[in-house]
């Protein structure tokens, strides 16, 4: 399980610079944006790792991963888009808090449940 965690963190470390390059035109040192990136990639990685571990063992692995992943990460993506645009445009916290809360809830719920079921995916 620890190796899985390290793997997840490694993926996050790869994902973060990619985000940084993609958001090159913006002020990267916005702490709110960094928070959103961190929370967003944590949630995405925890679900993505779990589903990827499942799909590599199936016959139609190339198509199956996006099909499985997309409906699950929709709330995360919606919250990330909303929260990061909010931080970049300097919304007041009262407008932002709902989206940031959703991000945190998503991360907690899915990291926890992914940890709980991951053993069943990798067992042989």
């Amino acid at each position: 399980m620890i190796s899985n965690l390290i793997f997840m963190l490694m993926v996050a470390a790869i994902v973060l610079p990619v985000y940084a390059v993609l958001y090159n035109n913006f002020n990267l040192f916005n702490p709110g944006l960094l928070l959103v990136i961190l929370l967003g990639s944590l949630g995405y990685v925890s679900v993505g790792t779990l589903l990827a571990a499942m799909t590599v063992q199936t016959r139609t692995r190339d198509i199956l991963l996006p099909i499985l992943l997309f409906p699950i990460v929709i709330p995360l993506v919606v919250a990330c888009v909303k929260a990061s645009s909010g931080f970049l445009q300097g919304w007041p916290w009262s407008d932002l808090s709902a989206w940031v809360n959703l991000l945190v809830v998503y991360d907690v719920v899915f990291t926890a449940s992914a940890f709980m079921v991951f053993d069943y995916v990798v067992e042989e």
Partner: peptide, 27 residues
């Protein structure tokens, strides 16, 4: 056996995501 295991995992993950999706657009 593997089909059952993965199906079970995805049914759990999928059902958890539904209320969150609802919440995300409920805002």
């Amino acid at each position: 056996e593997k089909r059952a295991r993965f199906g079970a995992v995805y049914a759990i993950i999928g059902f958890i995501s539904v209320p969150l999706t609802f919440l995300s657009i409920r805002i």
